[in-house]
C-alpha cells in the first residue's frame, strides 16, 4: 500500500472515512482516550472487544516506533564512536571550575591547589574502591579555602544488596580520609554517608526508563 498524500495537499483536518470507525467509535477518539491513560474509564470503549483490540494496536504501533529506531541504532556498533569522542574531548576542554582548594605555598611566589572537581573525583574514586559501593554524589561542607578550617565530607552512595552496612560506613570513612590526607591539606572532621539506594546484585543495564 502506498503512503497517503504528500503534506502539501493536506486539508485542515483529518479526512473522515468509514475506515476510521471502530465499532462506531472514531479512531481519533480512541487515540485521545489512550493519551489520557484510559481515564476516566469509558464503558462504551472498554465494553467493545473491537475497540480494546484497536487500543492494543495503537499502543503497539507507538512502542514499535521507538523499538524499531533502537533496533536500527543497534545495527552499527562503531558508528557513533567518532562523535562521542568529539563530545568527550569538548567536555574535557571546558571551563575549569573556578573554585580551587588551595594548598600551603611551598615557596614564596608559588601557589598550588587542586580544583574542587579534582577533589570530588578523588572522593568518588575512594568510595568506589569500597566493594559493592558506587558513589552518586559528593559534597564538601566548610570553607575549603581557609587552612585548618573544619570540613565535612558528605557522600551519597548506592550499595549492592548484601553488603553489611555497618562496616560500610567505616570503610568509606577510612578510604575517604586517607585519600584526602594524601592529596589535600583539608582538615576533615567528619564523613557523612547517606545510603541513597540499595540495588540487587546484578543490576540490569539501562535501568528504569
Amino acid at each position: 500500500m502506498t503512503p497517503p498524500d504528500d503534506a502539501s495537499a493536506v486539508p485542515d483536518g483529518p479526512r473522515p472515512s468509514p475506515d476510521d470507525l471502530v465499532d462506531g467509535v472514531p479512531l481519533e477518539e480512541l487515540v485521545d482516550y489512550l493519551d489520557r491513560g484510559r481515564e476516566p474509564r469509558d464503558p462504551r470503549i472498554e465494553g467493545s472487544p473491537a475497540c480494546r483490540l484497536a487500543l492494543q494496536a495503537l499502543q503497539r504501533v507507538s512502542e514499535l516506533t521507538l523499538e524499531s529506531l533502537q533496533h536500527e541504532a543497534d545495527r552499527d556498533p562503531g558508528r557513533d564512536d567518532r562523535w562521542i569522542s568529539g563530545l568527550m574531548g569538548t567536555i574535557a576542554r571546558e571551563v575549569v571550575d573556578g573554585r580551587a582548594v588551595p594548598l600551603a605555598a611551598p615557596a614564596p611566589g608559588v601557589g598550588t591547589a587542586l580544583t574542587k572537581a579534582a577533589v570530588r573525583g578523588l572522593l568518588r574514586r575512594a568510595g568506589d574502591a569500597v566493594d559493592g559501593v558506587l558513589v552518586t554524589a559528593t559534597e564538601l561542607v566548610g570553607d575549603v579555602t581557609v587552612p585548618e578550617a573544619p570540613v565535612t565530607v558528605r557522600l551519597a552512595v548506592t550499595v549492592r544488596y548484601g553488603v553489611p552496612l555497618a562496616d560500610l560506613a567505616d570503610a568509606l570513612r577510612v578510604a575517604v580520609t586517607a585519600a584526602l590526607a594524601r592529596h589535600t591539606e583539608l582538615n576533615v572532621v567528619a564523613v557523612d554517608v547517606t545510603i541513597a539506594d540499595v540495588v540487587p546484585p546484578a543490576e540490569e543495564p539501562g535501568g528504569a526508563r
Binding site: 575549569v96 608559588v110 601557589g111 591547589a113 580544583t115 574514586r125 592529596h183
Partner: peptide, 15 residues
C-alpha cells in the same frame, strides 16, 4: 629574576 615571577600549578585531576 626569581622574585619577579609568580608560579601557579593546579591539579585538575588525580588519576
Amino acid at each position: 629574576r626569581p622574585d619577579a615571577w609568580a608560579v601557579r600549578v593546579v591539579a585538575r585531576l588525580v588519576d
